[in-house]
Amino acid sequence: MSAGDTELTPTESYNDAMTDATIEMTGVRKRYGETVALDGMSFSVQPGRVTGFIGPNGAGKSTAMRVILGLDAPNEGTALVGGQPYRSLHRPLTHVGALLDADALQPSRSGRNHLLWMAQSQRISAGRVDEVIDMVGLTGAAKRKAGGYSLGMRQRLGIAAAMLGDPPIVMMDEPFNGIDPEGIIWMRGLLRSLAAEGRAILISSHLMSELEDVVDHVVVVGRGKVLADATIEELVARASHDTVTVRTDTPAEAVTAIQAAGGTAAITSTDCVEVAGLQPRLVVEILSAGRVSFSEVTSQRANLEDVYLQLTAGEAEFQAHSDARRRR
């Protein structure tokens, strides 16, 4: 490298590119032989918030991310980052930081040298390498061979690599995998602060519970299609399957009373009735008015997990069937 090459400081590029902090996927289809991995997937990721990319294993999350990064070419549709195809980006790591696979390391190369070649490929200074190492808390281990890192350390190294170019877009595939509880808390804080800085964050998971506390927006996918694309609030409201469980010795009478009052109820076990569409307070009033004895009335608010399971239930059934077919 000649002395004339200037190494840009990450801050310059960050400010430059921040206006383009979006990911847009439009009608992307991707087949691998007979298997359809993405079946007309469309969604967008906006700046200033954390978008959760969620779906069961095999839903196409990783494939979508590879398509966004220009690693896999779609058969149809487009994937743009900041309005451009990834492959046309100059110094791409200053536009998009990605953590696809924490194990993707040359085991005999040190963590610092892993980041160093990436930095050199973007004309990012070695000083920035030490900065991101410090940021993820790997300073002590940076000069050791990456092959000896624990999964948590490899995840941190992957995050350091994603943050190397201080990119306006950050994309991580299953970032919570294998991280200890302390690391999970750290990761959530990091993701929130990155979004607060105006970056577009896309993180995938197959578990809603991992994302619940950190994402603002969710894209639920299954079988290569987007099943839902909404904020957390919208998603919960859309489901709105709040139920009330009544524990009683006379379930049949309870059902009659509630139905007479215009509610829907069903006996779920010998001493349980599930009521839908009525507030718990109203249920108590109806039962009291009808002189139906009960020992307990509990309200069950639908959470994100339930919504997710409902959305992907059909998907799971399908998989079970196809598994059964294959076994035969």
């Binding site: 590879r66 990064l69 220009g70 690693l71 990834y86 492959r87 046309s88 980006l89 791409p92 790591l93 998009v96 990605a98 696809l100 696979d101 194990d103 993707a104 390391l105 040359q106 085991p107 990436m118 490929s121 973007q122 690599a161």
Partner: peptide, 18 residues
């Protein structure tokens, strides 16, 4: 081949798409 084996090739092509 070591990059393919470790899937590091994806990191390589993410950093250097050409």
């Amino acid at each position: 081949a070591a990059e393919y084996r470790r899937r590091l090739i994806r990191t390589t092509f993410t950093a250097m798409p050409n």
